[in-house]
Nucleic acid binder design. Structure first.
Lengths: 174, 174
DNA sequence: TCAGTTACGTCAGTGATGTTGACATATCCC
DNA sequence: GGGATATGTCAACATCACTGACGTAACTGA
């Protein structure tokens, strides 16, 4: 495939933004780097990478997730997913069960071991978040959630909202 | 360089987090994915990737940046940096000049073409940011900046602050 | 029931980005 | 002049993504 340099729409008007938000751009970069850096060090000890973390996280958060739904969340190809998922299965962090109504589906569940690791990783990230929120004034948490949610592509928000919905389910059960 | 994990005040008994901040963790993931996704599509047309974007961004923002300073910002090896930097040099998006006081140094500058691309990419990200901020209430911008800054590893904040300082220089000159 | 679609697995090859380790070169500083 | 510093480079490798093609089992509807 060739890069179609000459084919970019010349009529791209792109109303050129009042002033680039350099500060937020850079803060976002550094904050995210450190945010994912915490789990990275732990994952290394298990022979896992970030890809494994993402899979484990969403499976643990959404018991019974199908492969198709996971692919939709992660936005990677099934070949990419399969490699890391296979390792999580072999090492006993995730398990598959046959779909209840559709036997073609593989419903994914975190094993106790997988759940423990997922929670551990989530807690390290939570520590950084809580520390950050403690440094900031009250109301920062709500503002941060609003801002991050608004940064998400509108078309994708239903998917994200559905994951959050699932959070509510879990909470109301406890 | 090692992070002095073992040297933190032992009086911190690691209170194991009240409740995992699942919502913020997931929002952060999705928001960042879309935040970097915008430039990705443009970069592809130039045969560049995210690595090129990061280098170009910080060079454009900090004219005269040295290789060592850039390595410190990006936290990658010089071999990794060299590959992408070489491409940016060859394609004429960045240029090198001899250090003024130290002739071993290569001071990096964005060319006009490089500056144009860097600004273009920053503006696409700014559009998403501005749209998000417009959706949120007043005060969200300040809160978001506070939160993201607080998420950064304290030891790294001086570096980030120095970059922001440079922003101020540029502003006061304009 | 049979044909088409769907859900998933897998083989093979490639590319982008990161790593470690070793070594070369030019320059600075004492 | 000798050691440290700033940078460049060669080689090998790991991770995580991609495309394309093909296989299998199970659902679905005419």
């Amino acid at each position: 495939m060739q890069t179609a340099l000459g084919m970019r729409t010349p009529a791209a008007p792109e109303p050129p933004v009042e002033r680039p938000q350099y500060e937020l751009i850079e803060l976002f970069f550094f904050a995210y780097r450190d945010f994912v850096g915490d789990p990275d060090r732990t994952l290394e000890q298990y022979g896992f990478g970030r890809a494994h973390h993402r899979v484990l996280h969403f499976v643990e958060r959404n018991p019974g997730l199908t492969i198709a739904a996971l692919l939709d969340i992660l936005r990677i190809t099934k070949q990419s997913l399969n490699r890391v998922l296979k390792e999580l299965l072999e090492k006993g962090y995730v398990e598959q069960r046959e779909g209840l109504t559709d036997r073609r589906q593989r419903l994914l569940y975190a094993t106790p071991r997988g759940r423990a690791l997922a929670v551990d990783l989530a807690c390290m990230q939570t520590k950084r978040i809580d520390r950050a929120l403690a440094e900031c004034g009250a109301g920062t948490e709500a503002a941060a959630k609003r801002f991050l949610a608004a940064m998400i592509e509108p078309a994708d928000r239903p998917v994200v909202a559905q994951l959050a919905q699932h959070d509510d389910d879990l909470e109301s059960r406890s």
